[in-house]
Design a protein around this nucleic acid. Structure first.
Lengths: 121, 121
DNA sequence: ATAATATATGAGCATCTATTCATATGTTTA
DNA sequence: TAAACATATGAATAGATGCTCATATATTAT
């Protein structure tokens, strides 16, 4: 009963465990879901954005504050805030000519905590 | 007492909230820690790797199985397994000419669950 | 209205990264 | 030993990404 498998690319696959593959395939979330998840983590995959999010754990900050904190250009910070905004991770509030950013998500902290737990072995 | 602030780059910064910046700076983890965290999330920031990890939630799999499941080349899968291995997210076991990969981390599932919670608003 | 200031944004560039292709390594079978 | 096969890996390439620079927008003060 193991001989009638379809030939699967590159592995000459009389050995592929079709039962395992099928079981796994059933339990996989939809492709779109996995794509969106990767997109979310991509946002977390940059030191500048991680720093901004960590900063916002502590306090709401204006762009100028964040720029001062990180020692980057205002432009660089603004570009990254846009990415965080698009990912719905931060929200903003305008007050005069200043714009105050704050967290807009309850999950980020938990995700970061688990991440920190991983890297400390 | 707000007038004696150092001039901080690009913002003419009589307005920067020095107290806030200082408080935030105190609570920031070490740079190296933030860097490592971003590196970890970078690993999660790719659809192929996310798929591999999700697959391994369900079962241990050989490279051939994973290749069949994802419809990629064996080389592509192998390269990504290396990345996951280096990040200590998967471990492997050799059996004859085949190599079986499985999860090597308790945090990934929790991180992914929180991520999924975020993307479903 | 003009100047000053805070933030946002488009273009360009340098760097990084995921895949492919070719090939190497290591194991099993004939 | 030679052939077949599973996996790993180096080099090359195409596409993505983060920063800088210049400039636009919007608000406040003069």
């Amino acid at each position: 009963m193991e001989n009638e498998h379809d030939v699967i690319e590159h592995c000459r696959a009389i050995v592929v465990h079709e039962d395992v593959v099928n079981k796994v395939r059933q339990k996989m979330p939809a492709d779109e879901c996995l794509f969106d998840l990767a997109e979310l983590f991509k946002v977390f995959g940059d030191t500048t954005r991680v720093k901004i999010l960590f900063a916002l754990f502590t306090a709401e900050m204006c762009v100028c504050d964040i720029t001062a904190l990180l020692g980057l250009t205002q432009s660089a910070v603004s570009h990254q805030l846009r990415v965080l905004k698009q990912a719905k991770l931060v929200k903003y509030r305008k007050e005069g000519k200043m714009v105050y950013y704050s967290l807009d998500d309850e999950h980020v902290k938990k995700i970061f905590d688990q991440g920190l737990a991983h890297i400390s072995h």
